[in-house]
Every structure is written in C-alpha cells, then in structure tokens.
C-alpha cells in the first residue's frame, strides 16, 4: 500500500523553495484489542468521569487548569491557550546546516520522509545536496498548531525530517553518577573489547521484531480456526549473572571452541 501523506509543506532555504509532502516513517503496530464487558461481551468505551461522583463529564464541559508547586489552581480558558498557538504556516524553514554527527541520538523523536509535491527538479537537487554533503539541516515549522524543530537529513536518496526534542527535555549525562570502583584493568578491558568484537555484525533490522505481538497474533489465529492454543511452560528464570570477568572468560572460551 502506498504511503499516505500526512501533511504538505514547503522547505525554505533562504530564497529557495521546495514543495514537499510529509510521510510518517514509523507506525504503531500494536495488537488492536477491543475491551469488552466480561459478562455481556459488549465493547466498553472510555469516558471522563468525576472522581467523586463517578458521573460522566462530557469533553465540552471540561476546561484546563494548572496546579502550581504551591498547590494553587490556575484556570485557563481555551481561547487564552489558542492565542498562544503559533501562526499556521506551510513553511519548513532551514536555519542552519551542521555536520551529521553534531546532533546525537538523545535529540531525535519522530521521523518523516519527504516526498516531492511538484517541482521535481528542486526536490531532486535538495535530495542530492543532502546526500552528497552529509550535512544535516536544522528546521523550524508549524504543523497541527504546534511548533517543531527538526533535523533535515538524507536517507537512501530521500530527504528525511526528524522532529527534535526541545533542549529542556534532554537530560545532561553529568546528572548520572559517575562510575566508581577500582581503576580499569587493562586485561579486563582487552577481554571486554574481544567480547564486543565477537558480536560485531551488520545491523539486520528484520532480526528485531516484536515477538510478543507475533505470539498474540498467532494465538488469535489459532483460536479463530477453532483450535486449542498450545500451552507453553513459562521460561525458567535465569541464574544470577556471574562477575564480568568470569562471564567474559566463559564467553571467549565458548567462542573459541565454536570458531
């Protein structure tokens, strides 16, 4: 099935304009259960309820409030929040280009492929320039009344826009307690490096699947065909891990025997 564009915009690099369509590059694939009332098998629905009376509160009868650290409730009107929303725009403004490694994994949130929306020559030039320079653009745009910052980069010949977290959401690694203990032993480091090297291989995305979802789908299929699902014993708990050095030695020995 061909991907469906979720939004249309115009990439702007100074005076240059490249019309594009955005396509989601990831998708939710969870099993879609329906929640039923046990006795009647009727689907149940979620609603907003008053926590004390249990009465259903229609969405139209709600308003937003914010509880401060001091416990004060600040009430907000929908129109007040609406006034703060960014101006609607179709522009994806590129404000700078950085080397590809300059933005690390912590910043990336959600990727979108960019496809052409007319002007194929401009689109092809943008895609080729991103691919050939290896540069990554920092872009600002507004989509669905929300302002985004994103990284524009090449992916297999296509421009790809990945939304980035705002800086206040990225936690500094200095907030994690630094490792303590004895100074690193050269022998242990060498063994650890050997262990890593033994598992070094090309990345194979197909090897990383949601196995639980597949088992649930298999169970549904089995039951739909009127068959009894196989009963599988729960996996035994693993023993406590031995210390790193012993684990490395054992692994290296086993690796040596297999080689």
């Amino acid at each position: 099935m061909a991907a469906r564009a979720i939004w249309k915009g115009v990439v702007r690099i100074r005076d240059a304009r490249v019309p594009v369509k955005l396509y989601a590059a990831v998708q939710d694939r969870g099993v879609r259960f329906r929640l039923l009332e046990r006795a009647t098998k009727q689907p149940v629905v979620q609603s907003l309820v008053h926590p004390e009376t249990g009465a259903v509160v229609p969405f139209d009868a709600t308003r937003r409030g914010f509880v401060t650290d001091d416990g004060e409730l600040v009430l907000l009107a929908a129109e007040e929040l609406e006034r703060l929303a960014p101006e609607p725009s179709r522009d994806i403004d590129l404000v700078q280009f950085v080397p590809s490694a300059a933005i690390d994994h912590r910043w990336y949130v959600r990727p979108y492929y960019l496809g052409p929306d007319g002007q194929p020559e401009r689109y092809a030039a943008l895609a080729a320039a991103l691919e050939q320079t290896g540069l990554e653009g920092v872009a600002h745009w507004t989509m669905r009344k929300k302002a985004y910052v994103g990284a524009l980069r090449a992916y297999r010949g296509y421009p790809m826009l990945v939304t980035l977290r705002p800086s206040e959401e990225v936690v500094s690694v200095e907030q994690v307690e630094a490792p303590k203990g004895k100074p690193l032993d050269d022998r242990q480091l060498a063994m650890a490096r050997q262990l890593l090297a033994m598992l070094e291989a090309p990345f194979e995305p197909d090897a990383y699947r949601d196995e639980y979802r597949e088992r649930v789908e298999q169970l549904i299929d089995t039951k739909r065909r009127g068959k009894e699902p196989a009963r599988k014993a729960a996996p035994r708990r693993k023993r406590d891990a031995p210390d790193l050095e012993r684990a490395l030695r054992a692994s290296l020995r086993a690796g040596g025997q297999r080689a």
Binding site: R4, I6, A24, Q27, D28, Q46, S47
Partner: peptide
Amino acid sequence: ETCLMVHLDELLSHCEGCDAAVCTT
C-alpha cells in the same frame, strides 16, 4: 494533541491520518 492532557508516551497512539499523538480516550 486533541485534549491536551499529558500522558506517558507508551499510552499514546498516532493518528493514521495526520500522525498527531492521540490518547486512548
């Protein structure tokens, strides 16, 4: 993005029409 209530990321789906984050309600 519909009701503006804040949830854990694991509890949100994404709309298959516009990719907006949307809660189960």
